[in-house]
Amino acid sequence: MGDSQGIRNGPNALALAAALIAAALIGTNAKAQGGSGYFRYADARLALKHAVAVSEEPTDRADERRTLVFLSAEPLDAAAIAAAFDAADAVRDQKPAGGYVRVCIAADGSECGLYYSPEGFNSGGYGELSLQRNEPAHIAGRWLLAKGDFLGTPYDYDLRFDTPIVPAPGSDLPAGGGAPGAAYNAWLDALAKGDVAALRRMGGEDARWRFPDDDPGTVKESLKSLRDGEPLRAQISRGRQHADQAVLWVEGVDRDDIRRRGRVLMRRSAAGWQHVESDLDSVDE
């Protein structure tokens, strides 16, 4: 009995107690990781159990970067979301049961809105957002609204998240965007000149229906719609390539002398680098 008492009350007992406390804390922190809470809209209530966070860079300006947190009832593929040109599209493609909530957090730590699917409900400026961590690699916080009303429809939410920010995959491209950058500017040149044959080669899969051989009216409309909002020539500040996909951060002036800034998605095929999509906004000079 004496030896047993010594183990319970001596130095070994203190070490054992410390280990048990540490294990308990680790378990508590593990449970805190991810997402929890709920979102209620009318009679629909989504219980949240998981969270994924990614960084969104709509332009090359650091003050315009955002963190997007997606909360859901079931796990989401974080790697696919981080690799996507449009993170929300990647989440929708995964079709999480019951939908999802997207929380937007601006570079300065303020909220830049939330979105609730499947209702297609957007909101911002309501409730209270508090962040416990807001770091390049991790985000943790809570956004609470006890009572809200949208055109007579009640809603409320308690959104909690504590999760790493999954980085976009890939490696940096050389100055000017390398081969994808050169291909984008070549596509812009062909667009400005109305070189339909070149646009068919460099326009990816969409070129098949945008520039049909037997429909000059569709070709004319496609040229007009594509020219709207695209710069005549792009300054490419940087780029990132992942496998056969590249994202370019670009800026330039369009045919209406409006400065455009944003991102461009390029994809490599057997025919070379092809333009897929542009996400450009007008900016003040």
Results as ranks from 00 to 15, higher is better:
K95Y: 09
L144T: 15
L129W: 01
Q94H: 01
L129R: 02
L114R: 06
S123H: 03
A107V: 13
G113Q: 01
D149H: 02
V103T: 04
A97S: 10
G152W: 04
V101A: 07
E135T: 07
Y126S: 05
E119T: 14
V101P: 03
S117Y: 10
G148C: 01
A97T: 07
Q132H: 13
G148T: 02
Q94F: 01
R133W: 09
G109D: 11
Q94P: 02
A106L: 15
S110I: 08
H138T: 08
R102Q: 13
A146G: 10
F150I: 05
G113M: 00
A140Y: 06
G109A: 13
A146M: 09
S123A: 14
G99R: 02
G98N: 07
P154S: 05
A137P: 04
V101I: 12
C112V: 11
R133D: 11
R142M: 10
F150C: 05
I105A: 06
Y115G: 08
P96Y: 03
G99K: 02
G152C: 12
A140C: 11
L114G: 10
G152Q: 03
K95D: 14
V103C: 04
Q94R: 01
A97H: 05
C104F: 10
L145V: 03
F150P: 02
C112A: 15
V103I: 12
L131F: 11
G148N: 00
N134Y: 14
Y100W: 12
G109P: 07
R142W: 09
S123L: 06
E111Y: 03
A137I: 06
G125A: 00
V101W: 05
G141H: 10
S123C: 06
Y126P: 00
G109Y: 08
N122P: 11
E111Q: 08
T153Y: 12
Q132K: 13
A140F: 08
C112E: 14
G109T: 10
H138E: 07
L144Q: 15
Q132D: 15
N122F: 14
E128D: 11
D108F: 06
S110D: 12
P136D: 03
Y116F: 15
G109N: 07
L129G: 03
N122Q: 14
L131W: 14
P96E: 03
I139F: 02
E128S: 12
D108Q: 10
K95F: 13
G124N: 02
A140V: 10
S130G: 14
